[in-house]
């Protein structure tokens, strides 16, 4: 197959049932198996030898995984849905926004939701958004379908004979903002990302930060602060609250444990700082500020000066 390993076999199931059978068979016979979504993560890993697989189960032809749908209060997105499919989805503008800023057009055309969950990269754009969205993950294995909160899915990992079929999240109840930064103008993996979702009905604001921990982290204290500060009847908040919200995010980001190990792009201190700025901005863009935005929740003198 494409990875050059001569002993690997490629299976192309047409239904989730067939896919599960293939996984189960491989599992029983003890062969190393990999699920293939768009292959944007898996193929490079197989090529470089970082991963190896004797059997590859390609999910592209499983049409039931490629649907996205809306119920009365939830949205369900199949594991085979691509970023391009999500971009422009009017039922979930925040998710559409997060999908639109993933990689390049080639990656968006092929990369899937299932792959994003399977890889669970610390700075994965979808992961940060879904973390803020309290998403649930739907999986299927020979033991039947299962549904679990995203954090549990990420903590426990997927059973070797299971696959992700979909993610489910609530229909938006207010503004949603997704922001990321990463070192150039386009086509970059996030160094820090931030999702803020407002639910005007349930009087809730949720915030997740990617790029400070091994996985995106919820900012519980800042969320509680927001719940208490926002005037939910009008959706307004004081501009000083945006600043405070950002400061709380900086403090929480700095306490995340285990922290993301220092990498080549962005010191830990910068990532905490940027998390605060992004969160403050996302907060301000989701809500009406009662005073004109005089500034940002930046620390220190914004104008700079001699360091």
């Amino acid at each position: 197959m494409m990875a050059g390993g001569k002993s690997s076999a490629m299976f192309r199931p047409r239904t989730v049932g067939e896919a599960v059978e293939m996984l189960a068979a491989a599992h029983e016979s003890g062969t190393a198996v990999a699920l293939l979504g768009g292959g944007t993560d898996l193929v490079p890993a197989l090529r470089s030898g970082e991963r190896s697989a004797e059997t590859v189960v390609a999910l592209r032809r499983v049409l039931e995984l490629r649907v996205r749908g809306a119920g009365a209060d939830s949205l369900t997105i199949g594991a085979g849905v691509t970023y391009t499919d999500l971009d422009g989805w009017s039922l979930s503008p925040g998710l559409a926004r997060a999908a639109r800023v993933v990689g390049s057009v080639q990656i968006r055309n092929t990369g899937t939701v299932g792959g994003a969950l399977g890889s669970a990269r610390p700075g994965g754009d979808l992961l940060t958004f879904l973390t803020a969205a309290d998403a649930e993950v739907l999986t299927v294995s020979p033991r039947g379908p299962e549904r679990m909160p995203l954090p549990r899915f990420l903590a426990d990992g997927l059973a070797p004979d299971a696959l992700v079929t979909a993610v489910r999240l609530a229909r938006p109840g207010g503004p949603q903002v997704y922001l990321k930064i990463g070192g150039r103008q386009a086509a970059y993996p996030a160094v820090v990302s931030c999702a803020v979702l407002v639910d005007r009905v349930r009087h809730r604001l949720t915030c997740a930060i990617g790029g400070v921990g091994l996985l995106p982290v919820r900012m519980g204290e800042a969320e509680r602060y927001a719940r208490d500060e926002v005037d939910w009847s009008t959706g307004t908040v004081s501009s000083s609250a945006a600043r405070r919200f950002g400061d709380l995010v900086v403090e929480a980001a700095a306490r995340v444990s285990p922290a993301l190990p220092a990498g080549p792009r962005g010191s830990a201190e910068y990532r905490w700082h940027a998390a605060g700025v992004l969160a403050g901005r996302a907060f301000a863009r989701c809500l009406h500020l009662t005073a004109p935005p005089v500034g940002e929740p930046a620390r220190g003198s914004a104008a700079g000066g001699q360091p």
Binding site: G183, L248, V250, R255, E269, Y270, W272, H273, A298, G304
Partner: peptide, 23 residues
């Protein structure tokens, strides 16, 4: 030039003190 060279960064000490104060 890195983004971190252009802004004033919190130090570990600042954020930990601030965090302690707020909790």
């Amino acid at each position: 030039v890195r983004p971190q060279d252009l802004v004033d960064l919190p130090t570990r000490a600042d954020v930990h003190t601030a965090g302690d104060a707020s909790t």
